[in-house]
């Protein structure tokens, strides 16, 4: 019995140290890991394709005036799927490998807002004309999405911290 225990001990010593040193030493994700989606404001043309495909509907577009578009991204509910980076015609969104997103001050740390300048059409003097007539009826004038965060219409009383 003792020999079997000894054997077990020797066997379990063989692999050596397997534990990752992670919080004390950096450990970069390998492969095609997708982390924080970063937006390059200089490349973005404000087309809104990313807002249309985002499954979490976290990209909200508001037009401040004729040619300035504000994009508010509530990345707190981002699922890092990469669809926004996929559809972006200008490759303005890159999925970085940044995963250390934990915070102690609240979800507003994940909000990313940007303002982009949109070139005006020489013919219609508007920025983007909807592709088909139906969309034109549905979306007259400028786009002004409501910023909707998870739980804002919650009917429940939250427990207050003491």
């Amino acid at each position: 019995m003792i020999t079997s225990k000894l054997k077990e001990a020797i066997l379990s010593l063989r692999p050596g140290r397997v534990t990752l040193k992670y919080p004390f030493a950096p450990h970069d994700p390998e492969g095609d890991f997708r982390g924080y989606p970063e937006l390059d404001t200089d490349k973005c043309i404000g087309c809104g394709a990313c807002a249309a495909v985002c499954p979490a509907r976290l990209i909200m577009i508001q037009d401040i005036d004729q040619n300035t578009r504000r994009m508010v991204r509530l990345l707190e509910r981002c699922i890092f799927c990469g669809r926004c980076a996929d559809v972006c015609p200008e490759d303005a969104i890159t999925m970085t490998k940044h995963f250390e997103l934990s915070t102690d001050s609240g979800r507003e740390d994940m909000v990313a807002e940007c303002e982009v300048f949109m070139a005006t059409c020489q013919r219609c003097t508007r920025c983007y004309e909807p592709a088909n007539p139906l969309d034109k009826i549905m979306e007259p004038g400028f786009r002004d999405d409501e910023i909707k965060r998870g739980g804002q219409d919650s009917p429940y009383e939250p427990i207050q911290s003491d």
């Binding site: 992670y22 707190e76 250390e100 934990s102 919650s154």
Partner: peptide, 26 residues
Amino acid sequence: VGGADTILPVDYYIPGCPPRPEAILH
């Protein structure tokens, strides 16, 4: 309801879907 902090006072947030184990360790 939409998020744990609509019910409880949350102290630490770890986003990710799912967060990788390193992110939880962080």
